[in-house]
Computed example of a mutant assay.
Amino acid sequence: MTWDNLAPLVVFALVSTVTPGGATTLVTASGARFGYRRSVPLMAGITAGLAGLAAAAAVGLASLILAAPSLQLAMKIAGSGYFLWLAWRIGRSGAPDLKTEMATPTGFAGGALLLLLNPKGWAMALAAAASFAMLANGPLQLAVLLGSVLGLASAFSLSLWCLAGLMLAQMLKTERQWRMLNVALGLALAVSIVPMWRQ
C-alpha cells in the first residue's frame, strides 16, 4: 500500500478526531484539572473505543446497529445521559486542589464508554469503513487498518486538546476563573449531544 492510497484515510482520521466534540471537550477539561499524566487513561479509553468502533465497522457490526432503530434510540438515550452526567460533574467543579487526591479523573472505561454510547462515533466509523474498504483485502485487514489509523489519529488529537487544557490551567489564577472555565466546558459537553439527536 502506497502513501498516495493511505493519505486520504489519514487526513479523514485527523480531521475527524481533532474537531471539537464531546471527547475533545472532556479531554480538555481533564487536562486543565488533572494534568496530562492523569488524563492518559481517559485518552487511552477514548482511543481504544474509537479504534474498536472502526474495527467493528470494518467487519460489519456498525451496519447492524445502525439498521436497528430501537437500538439506536437506546444508545442515544444512554449516551446523552452519560454526556450530561459528565457535563454536570465538570460544571460543578472548582479549582483543582493539588494537595488532595479526592477528585479523580475519568478513567479508561469511562473514555471507552463515551465512544461506545455515541451513535455519531458509530456513524463516523461506518463511513470510514465504507469509504476506505478498497484499501484492504477483506474485512479483517480493513479492521486492522482502520483501527490503527483512527486510533493513532485519536491519540495525537486528544494529546493536543489535553495540552490546550494544560495551557488554560496555567492562565487561571482565581477560583472564579476556574468556575467559569468549568461551566463553559460543561456546557460545551452538554451541547455536543445536539448533533446526536439531529441525525
Rank of each mutant, 00 (worst) to 15 (best):
residue 69 P to Q: 13
residue 124 M to Y: 00
residue 110 G to M: 10
residue 118 N to G: 10
residue 58 A to W: 13
residue 69 P to W: 02
residue 10 V to G: 07
residue 70 S to C: 02
residue 118 N to W: 01
residue 81 G to R: 08
residue 191 V to M: 09
residue 5 N to V: 12
residue 112 A to S: 06
residue 3 W to V: 09
residue 154 S to A: 15
residue 25 T to L: 02
residue 26 L to F: 10
residue 41 P to V: 09
residue 90 I to N: 04
residue 133 A to I: 09
residue 123 A to N: 01
residue 146 L to T: 11
residue 198 R to T: 00
residue 132 F to S: 03
residue 68 A to N: 13
residue 53 L to S: 14
residue 24 T to W: 06
residue 60 G to N: 11
residue 44 A to I: 09
residue 46 I to D: 07
residue 45 G to D: 03
residue 173 K to E: 10
residue 136 A to F: 15
residue 2 T to K: 06
residue 124 M to P: 00
residue 164 A to F: 12
residue 198 R to N: 05
residue 157 S to E: 06
residue 174 T to G: 03
residue 59 V to P: 08
residue 81 G to M: 07
residue 82 Y to Q: 00
residue 80 S to Q: 04
residue 39 S to A: 13
residue 108 F to Q: 05
residue 163 L to H: 13
residue 80 S to I: 06
residue 175 E to N: 14
residue 36 Y to H: 14
residue 58 A to Q: 14
residue 54 A to Y: 10
residue 55 A to F: 08
residue 174 T to L: 03
residue 48 A to H: 00
residue 186 G to E: 02
residue 111 G to V: 01
residue 40 V to Q: 08
residue 29 A to Q: 08
residue 130 A to G: 15
residue 87 A to G: 04
residue 187 L to F: 09
residue 93 S to G: 14
residue 106 T to L: 14
residue 32 A to F: 10
residue 106 T to P: 15
residue 179 R to Q: 12
residue 36 Y to Q: 14
residue 196 M to I: 00
residue 124 M to Q: 03
residue 122 W to E: 02
residue 19 T to M: 10
residue 20 P to A: 01
residue 32 A to K: 07
residue 43 M to Y: 15
residue 183 V to F: 13
residue 5 N to M: 14
residue 70 S to P: 05
residue 135 L to S: 11
residue 33 R to A: 12
residue 15 V to I: 14
residue 10 V to K: 12
residue 86 L to E: 00
residue 168 L to C: 11
residue 54 A to C: 15
residue 109 A to E: 08
residue 74 A to V: 09
residue 31 G to A: 06
residue 110 G to R: 06
residue 43 M to C: 13
residue 163 L to K: 09
residue 111 G to H: 04
residue 185 L to A: 12
residue 170 Q to K: 12
residue 81 G to I: 07
residue 94 G to H: 00
residue 70 S to K: 03
residue 65 I to G: 01
residue 178 W to R: 01
residue 17 T to Y: 05
residue 192 S to V: 00
residue 192 S to I: 02
residue 90 I to G: 04
residue 170 Q to V: 02
residue 177 Q to P: 06
residue 74 A to K: 02
residue 55 A to N: 09
residue 137 N to K: 05
residue 138 G to W: 11
residue 142 L to M: 06
residue 125 A to S: 07
residue 22 G to A: 13
residue 66 L to K: 05
residue 32 A to I: 06
residue 149 V to D: 13
residue 22 G to C: 04
residue 133 A to P: 12
residue 178 W to D: 02
